[in-house]
Amino acid sequence: MDTATIRVTRYRPETGPEPFFQEYKVPYRNDMVVLDALNYIKANLDGSLTYRWSCRMGVCGSCGANVDGTPKLTCASFLHEFKGRTINVEPLPNFPVIKDLVVNMEDFMRKLVKIKPWIIREKETPPEQGEYQQSAEELERYQQFSSCINCMLCYSACPIYGLNEKFLGPAATALAYRYIEDSRDQGKNVRFPIVHEMEGVWECTLVGECSVVCPKGVDPMLAIQKTKILGATNALRSILMPRGGR
């Protein structure tokens, strides 16, 4: 068994205002991930270490951290990939830290709700009248954008969000675009003003790192650019055809 050195950022507001680093030596096998190391530390070395996790298999999205400088799911980062180097584990960037690796997700959650992530119909039909039907092609148009697990890695990778937390950001726009592209949805008039306001998509300058770090293959960068194109064409249409253009 090899030994990995894990350097965790600790923040314990009840003892002091400054974050500090703490190193732990963790024995590991080839199939162990950073989250296993954190669990080993908590069980055997230091019960005070605080972090979020749940499923251990890349589905729940709660174990994100900045691993070796990159936002990652700790359950998907294998220890052997770091080959003897000290592994830095920090709380996700761009979010306020509550304790150790636990960040405040309030802003992110509020943004998810803000874009109204549900199917909006002009008129709801009762369930007895059947489902809203959709073809395989129609499903394909938005499917990848519905794979988001709300792990917030994209927000941590986005410097624009880091500079301006009012920015709607990657995951929320991807989710909005998922409904915009859904053939069953009729809520464009409600959702467009939310994504097309100044702090909606326009702040994005196409750094593209959100799509790089996404563990589920969602492409928020694409969703934001598509939403910008929709915004620009809508604005142009409303100027060329002020009445009834929409």
């Binding site: 306020p96 405040n104 309030e106 802003d107 509020r110 803000k114 937390e165 467009f192 003003p193 939310i194 097309h196 306001e197 100044m198 909606g200 326009w202 910008k228 915004g231 620009a232 064409t233 809508n234 604005a235 142009l236 409303s238 100027i239």
Partner: peptide, 26 residues
């Protein structure tokens, strides 16, 4: 973001001028 998260959302306003400027930029 305030610690207590106030839910006083202002009604969103489409940044129409900026949308046009972005179109010209592209």
């Amino acid at each position: 973001m305030a610690a207590g998260v106030e839910m006083r959302e202002e009604a969103p306003r489409v940044a129409r001028l900026h949308a046009i400027l972005w179109g010209i930029f592209s």
